[in-house]
Design a protein around this nucleic acid. Structure first.
Lengths: 234, 234
DNA sequence: ACCTACCCTGACAGTTTCCGACAGGATCAC
DNA sequence: GTGATCCTGTCGGAAACTGTCAGGGTAGGT
């Protein structure tokens, strides 16, 4: 665990030294070469630390990843637990696991008595109808939306006609009892809703639409809310 | 950084699973052999984690307040935000406010970049049908359940016949498109589901049923899950 | 006392990751 | 433009890690 220890020492060193601090100085402090120090910085960044590196100046620790414990009211704990319970029943296995982990992380920060309250939340969620498990490409769609990259898909419409599309995925929603991707459709040159189970051959492209996801999603949602009838499906 | 990530996942997994948990189970969860799992445990111990290993039983993680809470992954942030968004649309004004506050508290602890991710979560929730606002006595019912105190109510059943009841409220669920209270009914001497909108004159009593709420709720849930047809309404 | 179910550790060959040295490009402040 | 630094790729060698196998020990239940 020597490297993990060293990474912790590195971040402590950055907190301690006057900033900006050079790679050479940090390397000396942690006992590694400069090249290794660059790697260590990359690792810390990958773990969530916000470190700014200005050529000619040095490094600045912008955001410290240490999290203080939270104080939640009992009702807030109920809300969190209820929400996470809903997510766990959503049919999306990855998201369900994440909900479970998030719940555990929150619970771990709570005093013991509040932990018990969280575990035995009064408000519960049950579903007697089983949700269809999410298709395997949901994770890829989510990743594409995060990274604001276009997807190439084959889409089977209501008449079972298949078309190849390039889409800009904006959001994934559970709507009309099924999972849908809200996206910009290159074929139709307009916003469209795509049923996930009608999508096939989902391929991540290199085409980036950063930073347009959020404004486009806003516009699509505005249209969804403004219209009394649903907009056309894909 | 694959191993360091795995060690973090291991400790998260220990927090999540019921304890004691066997090395075999943890190895399966983290995708390594048992021998590697033993090594991982040794590494965590070397780093200060308090883990008790009882031969024939399994491992117990003794939570140390010095162990920092883990950072949320992006998917965990998505799960939290989606869950809280669902709660905000639930029709329960107090709970919605609490969800909002909880979300704000969590968001406030996140690094700025992750804050933006939380605000613009890919997975969203929408409801076009409006939920009936929760009746005013929902808060009172919740409080009674928390404090494990009986409630006196007037209940209007399906035939519009009104009966006075003393109930032990165990849980509140959204089921069959409406809010229901799962409770022990003094009149029927059995578990019953009560529609919140059919309840009136809800009065908190001084009769305590502590500490029976959790085992009773467990029993009621066991019955709910075991029966193919729904149990009788109140 | 016996049995079951597990924790625990050492050794080994093969695999994977990490390291420092070197090279070269990019950026920022003055 | 210059000086100081961040940044990233490549390479051979070192270090760490892995799973398999073997064998010993312990707690709880009967």
């Amino acid at each position: 665990m020597a490297r993990a220890d060293r990474l912790l020492r590195l971040i402590d060193t950055m907190r301690r030294l006057p900033q900006p601090v050079t790679a050479a100085r940090l390397a000396e402090e942690t006992g590694v070469s400069e090249r290794s120090l660059y790697r260590d910085i990359a690792s810390l960044r990958a773990s969530g630390a916000l470190i700014d590196g200005a050529a000619g100046l040095g490094y600045t620790l912008t955001e410290d990843p240490a999290l203080p414990p939270q104080m939640f009211t009992r009702l807030e704990v109920e809300a969190l637990m209820l929400g996470l319970a809903e997510v766990r029943l959503s049919g999306d296995a990855d998201l369900a696991r994440a909900a479970e982990m998030a719940g555990a992380k929150i619970t771990a920060t709570l005093p013991e008595r509040v932990q018990r309250q969280a575990i035995h939340a009064v408000q519960q969620t049950y579903r007697f109808e089983k949700r269809t498990p999410a298709p395997a490409h949901l994770g890829l769609i989510r990743e594409a939306a995060w990274e604001e990259r276009a997807l190439d898909i084959t889409y089977r419409d209501r008449d079972d006609a298949c078309t190849a599309r390039r889409i800009l995925p904006l959001s994934v929603v559970f709507l009309d009892r099924s999972l849908m991707c809200l996206a910009w459709c290159g074929l139709r040159q307009d916003f469209r809703r795509f049923h996930l189970h009608r999508m096939a051959d989902v391929t991540l492209t290199t085409e980036s639409f950063r930073p347009r996801r959020v404004p486009m999603l806003r516009e699509f949602l505005r249209q969804l809310r403004g219209e009394t009838s649903a907009p056309p499906p894909a």
